[in-house]
Structure formats: C-alpha cells, structure tokens
Amino acid sequence: MFLHTAVQPVSKKKGMKNIKIILLVIFLGVLPIGFICTWFCYKRIKRNHAEEGEDMELPLFSFPTIAKATANFSPENKLGEGGFGLVYKGLLEEGQEIAVKRLSRNSSQGLDEFKNEVICISELQHRNLVKLLGCCICGDEKLLIYEYMPNKSLDSSIFDKTQSMFLDWTQRFNIIKGIARGLVYLHQDSRLRIIHRDLKASNILLDQDMNPKISDFGIARSFGGNETEANTERVVGTYGYMSPEYALDGIYSIKSDVFSFGVLVLEIVSGKKNRGFIQAEDENNLIGHAWSLYTEGRSMEVMDESLAKSCHPHEVLRSIEVGLLCVQQNASDRPDMPSVIIMLGGQVALPQPKQPAFFMEKELPRAAFSSVTYTTSSINELTITEVNAR
C-alpha cells in the first residue's frame, strides 16, 4: 500500500512533464508556420492594395469635403464631360481652387483609367505636369482632385479665332518648350519611363501665367529598366495625333509621344487642327500641308496670320522644322525629346526632315476601327479612338 501510494505521484509528474515537452515541440513547430502564413497574407494584401493604388502616398479627401467644395456637384461648376464621367470646378475651405474628376458609376473604362492615373501620376512632380492633389474613394464614389487651371486647355486658346488673337508668338513658343520639358521628364528623368499615349492640345492645360501642363494619364503606360517599346492589340488614343506604327501595328514607345508632340508643334504654330484640316487646293492634312510648303521653301505660310506682328521668323521656321522631324514616317528617324530641347534652343544645325507620315483617315482600312469615337476628359473635351491593331 505504501509503495503504490509513493510511485503514483512520480508517474503523474513524469507524465505531465512529457505532455509539456510535447506541447512545447508542437508550439515551436507551429509558430514558424504561423509566421510564414502571416507574412504571405501580409504580402498578398499589400500587393492587392498596390494594384488598387491605395498604398500610394496620396492625400485622401473626404467625400463631404469635395461635395461642399463643388456645391454638391452643381451643374454650374461643370468643366467637362466624357467617358470617364464629369469634371467639376471646386473651392476648398482654405481657398484653393481645384478640378474634380468624378468617375461615372456605369463607366468600366473610367475605373481602369482612374487606377492607372493614380499609379502613374501620384509620384510625378514637374512644373509642366498637372499636379494630382489627392483622391477620394467612398463607396461607389471615386474622385480625382487636381490643381485648377484657370486658362483651361490649349485647344481652347489656339483653335478659337477670338482667343488665339491673345496668344502671341512668345507665349506659343514658351508653350512648345514647356511641353517638351514635361516630356523629357516623363521619358527620361522620372523614376519610371512614362509613355503618355494621348498627347494632344486638349490634354495640355494652361495655368494663370500660360505655362503648359501635361494632363490626363488615364491611358499612359510605364516602362521599367531598359524597356523602350511595347506592343498592344488594343490601341486607344486620339486620331490625328497617333503615330502610324501605333495606330496600325499597336507598337508604342517614346517615339510615339514624339510624333504626337510634332503634331502639336505644327498646330500651335498654325492655329489649325491636324485632323479636319481643309485646304482647297489639295487633300493633305496639316502635316502634309506643312511638308508641301517646306519643300517649296514657303514654310512661313504655315504660321497663323495673327502672329505676323509678334513672331520671330527664325524661331517659327525652326519650330516648323522640328515639328516635321518629329512626325517622320519611321520612328527611328525621329529625335528623342532631349534632342528636341537642344534643337528648339537653336544650339545645333537641324538635319533635313524626311517625308512625314501623312496618315490621313482614308489610308486606314475600315476594318481597323472597332468602335466609334467617344469623348472623355479631366478638364476639357477629348476624343479617344479605339482601334484594333493589325
């Protein structure tokens, strides 16, 4: 009886000790697995947030703040309308004027553009790029908030006969150079190489001092490392500004933006649109018209007549030549934007331009177009044409 009573506690203690050892082994085995699972979950959530643009260092505005700033999105404050949705002018309590992009609830394309714009432009800082001040995501409401540009877009200044009278040559030349500087930043100096893909007059906004700012990065694409070119089967851009290799084959690169810049230069100098340009004696668009006059030694006739008193002929001629160099048929023949800056500065002799890509609408087969054009805008009207590349 004595022995039985003495041995029982010893066995019990030994059993408890074994259980503790087993539990400790199990705990030490499970703990690393738990850490690993937690780490993977964290990385996955972080990656998903990055894809939504939610981990960007971008100020978040509350919906009531923006609603109040725009007088509850009053029609009187509407600046533009398009595929993305509506754009409103607003005034924050501290007195800052803003432009607000409000994503249309039934716009699936707008949602893609919203995400892309946040990702592309949230970390870009340059005096010739429109500044994204923040965003607002509240239920179904998705808003982008920008600095407000009092002089609206470039197209409203150069294509309007009345307004164009107030835009002299010095201002136009400064606008050309400012756009070029903005593109140099996007193509070369920003953290990622950005291809805008929809550079045009309505996407150039003018501040109170008529300084140009590139806007609307909804269909922009970023390149990392040594990437310089990509291909897509879904071509989205604006007809009249698209390079031939992009419109026909879906190939885009920095040289695609250079082509669009060249069209812009010719439009700024002439005050006429490339698309819809009508010349009684021929069927050329603006590019073809400028080329014809250049080959005949009559380039000054490209210039807007309202610039006769304010222009500097050597700057006008140089701008036209640079524009023609940028719209050459082969992408490899076009200069890059740092070279364009040097050319505009008059520091080098310009090479002879080769025949440009006239690229008139009648040259495109009807089957190339998959949809009609539609309008979308951040602050002004824009036209986006969707084309299926061959």
Rank of each mutant, 00 (worst) to 15 (best):
F2E: 14
T5I: 11
P9K: 10
G15D: 07
N18R: 15
I21D: 08
I21A: 10
I21F: 05
I33W: 14
F40A: 03
Y42L: 09
R47W: 02
H49K: 15
A50R: 15
F61G: 02
P64I: 10
N72I: 00
S74Y: 13
K78S: 12
G80V: 11
G85T: 09
K89L: 03
V100D: 12
R102Q: 14
E123W: 01
L124D: 05
H126I: 04
H126M: 08
C136S: 08
I145H: 02
Y146C: 14
Y146L: 15
Y148T: 03
K152F: 08
T162Q: 15
R172I: 00
R181E: 13
Q188F: 06
L192A: 03
H196M: 01
R197Q: 00
I204V: 14
K213F: 01
A220I: 00
F223R: 00
N226L: 10
M242F: 08
I251K: 01
I254D: 00
F261D: 07
V269H: 04
Q279K: 03
I287W: 03
H289K: 05
V302D: 05
L317G: 04
L325H: 07
D333L: 07
M337V: 08
V340N: 02
V348N: 03
L350R: 14
Q352F: 07
A357F: 12
R366G: 10
T373Y: 05
S377H: 09
L382H: 12
A389K: 04
